[in-house]
Each structure stands twice: as C-alpha cells, then as structure tokens.
Computed example of a mutant assay.
Amino acid sequence: MPDDDPPAWKVGVLFSRSGVTGLTETEHVLGTALAVEEINTAGGVRGRPIAPLCLDPAGDPVAYRALARRMLADEGVGVIFGCSLSASRKAVLPLLERHDGLLWYPSIYEGFEYSESVLYTGATLNQTVFPLADYLLHRHGPRILIVGSDYIYPRESNRVMRDIVESRGGTVVGERYLPLDVDDGAIRPLMDEIVRLEPDAVFSTMVGQGARRLYRLYAEAGIDRARRPIASLTLAEGEIAAIGPHLCDGHLLAATYFGALDSPANRRFDRSFRERFGDGPPPSMWSQTAYAQVHLFARALAEAGSLDARRLGEAALRTRFAAPEGDLAFDAENRHLWLTPGIGVARPDGQFDILWRADAPVRPDPWLASTRFEASWARASDVVPVVP
C-alpha cells in the first residue's frame, strides 16, 4: 500500500556537542530539539513534520565546512540551524551562498556582516556591549582590563569596548589574548596582572573551556568579585553550573535572555525544558535563542510553504514570535533581530538577579552605523540596579 504520510521538512542541525565549545553548543542542540518536538507534536508545519539531520563538527571549522557541504550538496538540505563561533559561520558561509542555502545563526557575535544566506538571531554589540560599558563605568569605575580568546569575535568585540570606554573618559589598563585551548598555566600570570593593576572590572570575551578556567582561577586568586567583577557576554546559567555557582556569584552578564525572567512565556519554556532534559543544563541564552529561532522558522515556513532560501527568508522578515525572552521580530534592512538588552549579576544558586533591562526591544545595528560612541547608550539613571 502507498505511504500516505506527508513528506517531512528536512533541515540540518550543525552544532558541536564536543570540542572546545561543546558545552554551549550542546545547549543550542537542546533548545533546537525542544522546539522541533513542540512543533511536531502540534501537527508540524502545514501538516508536515520537521525532520532534523544532526551532525557534530566537534568544534573544528574544517569539519563545519565539510559537514555543511554534505548537507547542502549530498543530503538535499537547504536550511541549517547551526554554528556558534564566528570561525564556523565564516567557514560555511561561502557554501551557503553557492548552494542557495539558509543558515539560522543563534549566537551573539561581533557584527559587521550581512548575507542573504543568513538570518542572525543572536544579539549584536549595540544590544550588549554598549549597555554593559555604561554599567561598568557608572557602577564600578573607569579602569577596565580586557581579556579575550584569540579569534575574530573577541578581537572585534574588545575593539568596540575599548572605543566606548575611551570615548567616555575611561581607561583600558590592559588588553590580553589567550588561545581557545588555553591551560591553567597560561592563565595564572593574568591573575597576577589583575591583582597588580587593580582594574575596576574585567571585560572578558574568553569562551569555551578557557573561560571556565578563567573563572575558576579568578576565584582561586581571591579577587573580590563584588568590587572587581568579570563582565561578559557569554557567562550563562549552563556554564555557571559547570564551573560551580559558588565560584561565579558577583560576576556580570550582558544578555537579552536570563532564566530568571518572569513572564508567562519564559515560565512555560523553563518548565518544558526542565521536564524534557531533567538534570541537564538549565535554560540559558544558548538554548533559548536556538529554541526561539526554530519557532520563527516554523512561522515563516507556514507562510512561505517552501524551504527555498529566498522565499523563506522573505517570510521570516515578516515573522514575529512571543519568545521566552520577549517579542521578536527581524529588522528587514539587516536580517538581525530586535532584542531587549539586560544586565544580570550571578547569584550563589547559579541564576541571575536582573539589575537592568531596557523598556522595549532595541534595533540591531550590526555595523554600528547609527550607534554613538561618544554619548551614553543609556542615561546613568537607567543602569542602576533594579534589585538590591
């Protein structure tokens, strides 16, 4: 007898579950999986289920390129949810453009990019670094030390942070870079330098295993985290759990999602995520953004009725979704999302107290074409804590 089941919508999932960023990219996978399951349980899209092809590049840009080529050229997959580091996105971008594919990219990144083969669902620097710089300068002081992993995202993000700090009368007392696979021995001299220089805060764009080592050694060095915190764009709840919450309380995160957000949409997401994944990592910016972009995709697909990159991309730019982090919509001019920035301080239980959050979504400005460096992103009164 013929098979009457409707054909599935085949998509690719290209995140590393191992390697230097295996922890955070696994959270991307979990958020993606939860959204796919929710959509399929509700009947799929136009009565057809989403069928993900999941491959693990293990953090290797060469493997990202090879597996993306396999998806696009051999498996007939035109839509990919994937990549985290900028190196992996850059590795697959030429293939997407050549094969008319469409990447849904859920990571914060350095900006300064536009491609009609990508929908960018992570925060841009004007939605994270600018409010964080204001907060540090107003609440902690003008002397900032910068440290990052040695690749494009940290170098570009740190360049912007330096420009903001210096344009507003602050001082960058040092800027240091370490390899992605840095060991404890290479980080310890940095701790000595922090103790010697006594910055008011440390802005970190270290990621992956190196970032986890940084936070552990910071605590080991006995540096006062309340007085001299590490402020980052990446220290989310799952990584805090892996490091140890008792080693992270007092550190700061600038992000558009916190697990502690109190809204009906986030309470539903938190409950569903914990029921589905049990003792795994808690909900975080990594899993939530991946989750939200799949729901955006499903709504766009329902309108477009096709996985054709152009038609689907055009439909996505008209799509809205009430995500756990808030209402989402793309900016049609640059293919990035309007997002609501926030700043949180880590608590001893591994969650965040939200110190400040914008009143409304902020337009993405990936080229920093309209964001002013010489004037505060927000008024000083806007960046004082809203909790004790």
Rank of each mutant, 00 (worst) to 15 (best):
S107G: 10
R70D: 13
M71E: 08
L125W: 00
P94G: 10
V92W: 03
P61T: 11
P61K: 12
S117T: 07
R48F: 03
L93C: 08
I80H: 04
L95G: 07
I80Q: 03
L67C: 02
R46H: 06
M71I: 09
S88P: 04
L125T: 08
G59T: 03
Y135Q: 02
I108C: 08
P61C: 11
F81W: 08
W104N: 05
P94R: 11
A73D: 13
Y114V: 00
F81S: 08
F130C: 00
R65N: 11
V118Y: 02
R139T: 10
P142S: 13
K90Q: 15
P57R: 08
P52M: 03
Y64L: 04
E116Y: 01
G76R: 11
G122F: 07
E116K: 12
L103T: 04
L136E: 01
V129K: 01
L132H: 00
R139N: 15
Y109E: 08
D134E: 03
A91F: 07
L96Q: 09
A133W: 00
R48Y: 03
H138L: 13
R69W: 13
P142H: 07
S88K: 05
C83T: 15
R139Q: 15
L102N: 10
I108Y: 13
P49Y: 04
P106S: 12
I80E: 02
A66I: 02
Y135L: 09
Y114T: 02
D74E: 15
A66M: 13
G78T: 13
L55R: 15
G122S: 10
Y120M: 06
L137M: 14
E75G: 12
P131C: 04
H138G: 02
G141M: 11
